[in-house]
Structures are given as structure tokens and as C-alpha cells.
């Protein structure tokens, strides 16, 4: 989700022009000025990007910091294979392998950087996976934004995810106002995407076999607001390009909406609710 950036920006421009117009004694400009004052009241202490990062990092235990420490092991390991080009009958038809860190019930927390040229801002974000169906390349869950300046309560949205498995979904979005150029522009922001770039440019990644790749690429599209009305001042018109690391469960994403700040970065890590380790829960629909 994002602030309704385009209209906000227009208001900001108006704000800058406000003084001059007021000098003309124009009735319209008075209304604009009042609107600007109201907005300032609604956006009291804005959390800046640096603060938000600190909050998140403090919430993680020392164990988390060490989690990925490279340890020299006395055994020979086959290094993580680069995604291969599948051929023949297997052409892009392999489902991704299940990853326990991306299963139902798993929770993540972090930030979404919503900074724009006019302001430096980040929201704290919690995500919970509610459904996962790898056969259909489907994932869904909720996203909770905690310190949204214009909202009194945390704003929760329900999102649905397309897993780029090259069977159900490719790297090309083909909807949501995203061209293949926009797709490539966003995917290339993830370092783990670079080995895939050349093939994706050819066919959207259709012929890639990602079943053994340590990263899972997804698009998350928010579908509705769970606890607030659609008039809450936020927009869910865009969607997230997401890269999930199967190694440690970290999630990076970029929000894309032509009418919002470009490249709003989402950074999430798994949470363990005060435990010294990982805990799992599950349900099964009938």
C-alpha cells in the first residue's frame, strides 16, 4: 500500500504556491490553505527511514544476526545451483519446492520506505502468510502498516501473491499497468535476479527451471483493506515485486504504482515471537 502520492504531490505543489495565491485574496486558495493545515494536523510525528530501520533491527535477536554467518564446514557442499534452462518435455513445468519459511502462519516484520522527494518516511510493516498453494503458484496473507501518519490505527490489507514458477506465472506481469520494461526495471533491483536476466529478457523466464533456486520471486497485489474503509487515504492500486530468500526467510520488495513514489522498498525478516528458534503452525482446508 502507499499514500495517494500523485494527489499529495499536487497538494504539496499547491502548498508551495499557497502564499502567493493567498496574497491575491482568492477564495479558492483559502480553502486550499485550510486543507493544508488539516493535513499537517493529521501527520504529526513522521517516522523517518533511519528510525524505522533501527526499530526493526532492535527487534531481532542476536541469534538472527548470526543466523547467516558463513561457517567453514568440513564437508563438501554442492553450491546452490544457478537456475537452469529447462528443455524438452520439462519446459517450464516444474512447481517450486515447498519452503517451510514461506508456509502458512509464518510472520515477518520490517519496513516499507515510502520516502518521496518531499519527505523521508518509512512505515513499520508486519506480514502474515495465510494461504499457500504452490500447484497454482498462489500465496496470500495480510500486511499491516503500523505507523501510517494519516491513520489512527494500524492499516491491514489482504494481499494475493503470484509466485513466479514459470508454470503458472512468469516474470512478465502483463497487467496492473506494468510493461515488461517496468518488470525488468524492478526485478533487476534484486541481486539474486541477475543470473536470470538474459533469459527473462527473451521469454519472461518461461524456459527457466527455478525449482532449485534459493530465491522465490513473487508479485503481491493487495486486494482489500481489512480493518479500514477504502477512503482511508491510502491506495492499494499498485503491487509489490517481491524476492523471498529461502535461506533465511528475508523478504525484499518494491512497490510499483505509476501514481505513487517509485521503488518504495519493502524489507522484512522472519519473526519468532520471543522464541529461541522457529515455530510452525498449520491448518488444512477440507
Amino acid at each position: 500500500m502507499a499514500e495517494v502520492y500523485e494527489s499529495e504531490r499536487k497538494k504539496d505543489n499547491l502548498e508551495e504556491a499557497e502564499e502567493a495565491v493567498v496574497a491575491d485574496g482568492d477564495g479558492v486558495s483559502v480553502a486550499v490553505k485550510k486543507a493544508a493545515q488539516t493535513r499537517r494536523t493529521l501527520n504529526p510525528g513522521r517516522l523517518n527511514w533511519g528510525d524505522a530501520r533501527r526499530v526493526v533491527s532492535e527487534s531481532h535477536s542476536r541469534y538472527r544476526q548470526n543466523f547467516l554467518d558463513t561457517v567453514k564446514m568440513p564437508v563438501r557442499m554442492v553450491e546452490s545451483p544457478a537456475p537452469s534452462n529447462s528443455s524438452g518435455a520439462n519446459h517450464g513445468q516444474t512447481c517450486l519446492q515447498p519452503c517451510s519459511l514461506l508456509s502458512v502462519g509464518q510472520a515477518f516484520s520490517g519496513t516499507q520506505n515510502v520516502s518521496s522527494p518531499q519527505k523521508d518516511e518509512a512505515w513499520r510493516v508486519n506480514v502474515r502468510i495465510q494461504g499457500c498453494d504452490l500447484n497454482h503458484g498462489y500465496l496470500c496473507g495480510t500486511m499491516e502498516a503500523l505507523n501510517v501518519p494519516m491513520a489512527d490505527t494500524p492499516v491491514v490489507t489482504f494481499w494475493e501473491g503470484e509466485i513466479v514458477d514459470t508454470k503458472n506465472h512468469t516474470f512478465f506481469t502483463n497487467k496492473w499497468k506494468a510493461t515488461s520494461e517496468v518488470d525488468i526495471e524492478h526485478w533487476t533491483k534484486f541481486p539474486s535476479f541477475s543470473p536470470l536476466l538474459s533469459q527473462v529478457e527473451v521469454d519472461g523466464g518461461k524456459s527457466l527451471d527455478l525449482s532449485n533456486y534459493q530465491y522465490i520471486f513473487m508479485r503481491w497485489k493487495e486486494q482489500y483493506f481489512v480493518n479500514v474503509g477504502a477512503d482511508c487515504g491510502l491506495t492499494i492500486a499498485g503491487f509489490y515485486y517481491v524476492c523471498f530468500s529461502c535461506v533465511d526467510g528475508s523478504i525484499n520488495g518494491y512497490y510499483y504504482d505509476p501514481n505513487s513514489s517509485p521503488f518504495q522498498k519493502l524489507e522484512l525478516k522472519t519473526t519468532n515471537e520471543g522464541r529461541s528458534g522457529f515455530s510452525f503452525s498449520s491448518y488444512e482446508l477440507q
Binding site: M73, S100, Q214, V247
Partner: peptide
Amino acid sequence: MVNDPCLDVKLRVRTALG
């Protein structure tokens, strides 16, 4: 098990060994 055919297992094994 460090080269377990299941990616999920392989990754957790590395963590546990580490």
C-alpha cells in the same frame, strides 16, 4: 545431508551444521 535433494532440507542442514 548437505546435498539433500530437497532444497528446504539442504538449507536447514547447513544452518544446523553451521
